[in-house]
């Protein structure tokens, strides 16, 4: 065979011994360049240009950090809009080696991971739909928007759909002694449309909406 590739294979290959330095050296050098210099440079520039976002988009209210504009919170009180169901877990206060349900726990994002045929999922959704109707004084034949009864992927979804928010208006109007019209106007202002008019879905950020509620219709706190 006069195949040049075979000729090359048959000739004594250059010894691999001299290659120990580049083999080990490339691992260390690349670690420094891609694992240290690149993230640090990005951090420095990001902090200079977008310091608010780079730190987690923390929202302040009266000088107090009340959350991140991007991360959902667990709202249970009747005077607030409620977010989507969340299946995140947190450490059990009684036994730290175990976990318990802890909705919107940002220490560990989590989802149900139930398949569509899961009996557990079916039961959970049935229970959520029933509770949603009861909480909001809805008759049993009102269709519930799917985002109100399904858990998000992160367990930290900050948004709900406009339809979901609207069905909660009556409850909030009662709890805050506010008029439905005024609340509708507040909601309309809080809706963000598709990004750039095209991308994603129209939605309402629950934390921002509830902050606007507190500002427009303050209520006295009896419990903490």
């Amino acid at each position: 065979m006069t195949d040049p590739a075979n000729a090359l294979q048959d000739s004594p290959a250059p010894p691999l011994r001299g290659q120990l330095r580049p083999i080990l050296g490339s691992a260390v050098l690349m670690l420094i360049v891609t694992g240290v210099l690149y993230p640090l440079l990005t951090t420095a520039v990001a902090q200079a240009l977008f310091s608010h976002q780079a730190r987690g988009s923390i929202v302040e209210n009266g000088g107090r950090a009340v959350g991140s504009g991007l991360i959902g919170q667990h709202f249970t009180r009747p005077e607030y809009f409620h977010g989507r169901p969340s299946t995140t877990l947190g450490p059990d206060p009684a036994d730290p080696t175990k976990t318990v349900d802890s909705p919107y726990d940002a220490r560990l994002s989590g989802a149900s991971n139930q398949g569509v045929l899961s009996a557990r999922l079916k039961a959970a959704v049935a229970e959520r739909a029933q509770r949603y109707r009861a909480d909001n004084g809805l008759p049993p034949d009102v269709p519930v928007p799917v985002d109100a009864v399904t858990a998000s992927a992160s367990g930290l979804d900050p948004d709900i759909s406009v339809a979901n928010a609207r069905l909660q208006l009556q409850r909030i109007a009662g709890a805050r002694r506010a008029s439905r019209q005024a609340l509708e106007a507040l909601l309309a202002q809080a809706v963000s449309g598709r990004q750039l008019g095209l991308l994603g879905e129209p939605r309402v950020n629950v934390l921002q909406l509830n902050l606007a509620l507190d500002a427009a219709f303050p209520i006295e706190r009896t419990t903490r």
Partner: peptide, 12 residues
């Protein structure tokens, strides 16, 4: 007014 579809395990 809402996205619809199979939303379990999806972000709105």
């Amino acid at each position: 007014l809402h996205a619809g579809g199979n939303l379990e395990g999806k972000e709105l």
